[in-house]
């Protein structure tokens, strides 16, 4: 009985702590930002919140966990990273829901640049897409040289292929590759996961299927996967990331200065160096290659 009472009072204390916490909760300024230190060096911006819409690969690979705190420290802004597929990130830009975009589907980005939704459009970095599959390699892709031949082999052997199917940058690339190979994939062997890259890799691994992935997410997840790289190195497989600001003249609610600061930060020499070094300690190789100031046509040469 005494024990029960003691337990009850502990439980009651937990609960009242929760109520107490919730009472003073709901502040709209983030708690965990390094703002106090930053405030000493840089004045706090008038509108400190920057919404960054980006792809899952920059978050799942851990790159943003390194870059965002550095940016916040340097400028005093707080970045709200919304990691969705590139398709969704571009849609957020087109509605003015995000301030700045970091995305990797150049052909779809062109539309936003052309209609002046995205300004200050800069090349940031690249890595590459790779085709991964089970070690047994049922479609015998390891002997092939081109993506078109590889996809044809998958389709003819009806080997399982897991597509993202979520209109992300990777998904757009995959669809474009099928198109280029002159194929319309369909059938029970072609399955859409509708999920992010990390999850899709897990599904492919469990089902002994092939999938197209960016190298960074594959390396970050490799320890849990039973998947080998079966095709890589083709120029068509470049995965190119751009940053752009959402045009404040079109969407007045956009955080213009914050977006510009982030856009500039991504192509800054110091940041580019951080990008180049990212992943070397953990994977023995770079996950992304910095490209600021280069032309897209010159990549992979």
């Amino acid at each position: 009985m005494r024990f029960k009472k003691a337990l009850a009072s502990v439980a009651a204390a937990t609960l009242s702590a929760a109520v107490l916490l919730s009472g003073c909760g709901t502040t709209s300024t983030p708690q965990a930002s390094p703002a106090p230190q930053a405030a000493q060096t840089t004045p706090k911006p008038a509108n400190p919140n920057v919404i960054l819409a980006t792809t899952t690969s920059t978050q799942d690979s851990g790159l943003l966990d390194v870059l965002v705190p550095q940016f916040e420290q340097k400028t005093g802004y707080t970045v709200k990273t919304i990691a969705v597929g590139t398709g969704a990130a571009l849609a957020m830009g087109e509605k003015g829901e995000a301030d700045v975009l970091l995305v990797h589907a150049p052909s779809s980005e062109k539309k936003l640049v052309d209609n002046q939704t995205g300004i200050n459009y800069n090349l940031v970095m690249h890595n590459d897409f790779i085709l991964v599959g089970p070690a047994s390699d049922p479609a015998k892709i390891k002997e092939l040289r081109t993506t078109a031949a590889a996809l044809k082999a998958i389709a003819t052997t009806q080997s399982i292929f897991i597509s993202r199917g979520d209109d992300s940058g990777t998904d757009k690339m995959e669809k474009a590759l099928w198109n280029k190979a002159g194929l319309k994939p369909s059938g029970t062997w072609y399955q859409e996961s509708g999920q992010g890259m990390g999850q899709t890799l897990n599904i492919a691994s469990e089902k002994n299927g092939y999938t197209l992935t960016d190298r960074a997410t594959y390396l970050a997840n490799q320890k849990n996967l039973k998947l080998d790289i079966v095709l890589q190195g083709e120029a068509a497989l470049l995965n190119i990331y751009h940053v752009m600001q959402v045009n404040p003249e079109k969407y007045p609610k956009v955080n213009k200065d914050g977006a510009k600061a982030f856009d500039d930060f991504m192509v800054d020499t110091a940041t580019q160096k951080v990008i180049a070094d990212f992943g070397k300690d953990k994977f023995g190789q770079s996950l992304f290659f910095p490209d600021a100031g280069k032309k897209m046509e010159d990549l992979g040469k």
């Binding site: 983030p30 965990a32 930002s33 707080t78 709200k80 990273t81 919304i82």
Partner: peptide
């Protein structure tokens, strides 16, 4: 919420 690190 957006699953923002250290915030939401």
């Amino acid at each position: 919420g957006g699953n923002i690190k250290g915030y939401s």
